[in-house]
Computed example of a mutant assay.
Amino acid sequence: MSEVRIATEPRTEFGKGAARKIRRANKVPAVLYGHGIDPKHLTLPGHEVLLALRTANVLIRLQGDGVDELALPKGVQRDPIRGFVEHVDLLLVKRGEKVTVEIPVTTVGDVNSEGLLDQQLVSIAVEAEATHIPTGVEVDVEGLVIGTVVTAGDLKLPQGTTLIADPEVVVLQVISKPVEAPAEGEAVEGVTPEAEAESGEAASAE
């Protein structure tokens, strides 16, 4: 995984008012923590942070004013309406150390035409080297038939990546397509509209 370099500034003012001031300047308040260090309060450029966070588990190289560290985003607060990043918690990491992260689970192909894909997990917890976190794991579902179940233990993880999630947990399965009820006025197979009408009249007479 490549690094994204982001310039940092120290943050010395705190509270809601200070945070709003930072955001009005198109910047993001952040906290860097981990490895037993005192948390470092930082200010990051908003646009660069927004672009970086489009990649899951992005590795960020923080640089500026005495800071030169690698970090992983571990908590992101966004504006619920506009989607702007309002605050970021960053975990300090070192090359060679293992970290636990959630990676996306995606599918390729199409299941058997008689079945329906039911994906129950869109991400899975794994342990990987901090600078070699996989972008995700793919599951080939081409031609899978009804009744097929894929568990976490069935996933083919990249080399050097260890499953943390319960291996028995269901990631996806192929189920039967729901039976559609006949539309109003549409004859049920083997029953004519006339027969249905007569049946209804008989029930009313009773």
Rank of each mutant, 00 (worst) to 15 (best):
V169T: 14
S176G: 09
A125D: 12
A130M: 04
G83H: 00
A7K: 06
E69H: 14
P182Y: 01
V149S: 07
L144G: 12
A152F: 08
V191G: 01
T43Q: 06
R20A: 12
P73T: 05
D89G: 00
I81W: 07
E86N: 12
Q120Y: 06
V137C: 02
I164R: 14
R54K: 15
L144D: 11
L116R: 11
E186M: 13
G200W: 15
I164K: 15
V191I: 14
E180R: 15
E189G: 05
D68T: 04
E168L: 10
V137Y: 01
G136M: 07
F84T: 06
G75I: 05
A56F: 13
A205K: 15
V85I: 08
V191R: 11
L50I: 01
E186V: 13
G115M: 08
E196M: 14
M1V: 01
V145E: 11
A125V: 05
R82P: 10
S2Q: 12
P178E: 06
G83E: 01
T106S: 12
T100F: 07
L42A: 14
H47C: 04
Y33E: 02
L144R: 10
K16Q: 08
T161D: 10
A197M: 15
M1R: 00
G17T: 10
D154E: 10
Q63I: 07
L70H: 00
N112H: 15
V137G: 04
G96Q: 00
V126P: 04
V85G: 00
G64D: 00
I60L: 07
R5K: 06
Q173H: 09
E206T: 04
S113C: 02
L72C: 08
D154L: 02
Q77E: 08
A205P: 00
L44Y: 13
V122E: 09
Y33S: 03
V191Q: 05
A128G: 04
A165L: 03
V188K: 13
R11I: 01
P104Y: 06
K74M: 13
S113Y: 10
V145G: 04
H87C: 00
Q119S: 06
T107E: 09
T162C: 04
E201I: 12
E48P: 05
K156C: 06
A125S: 11
R20T: 09
V67P: 06
L117F: 12
E129M: 14
E102C: 02
G160H: 03
P29R: 03
L155E: 10
E13I: 04
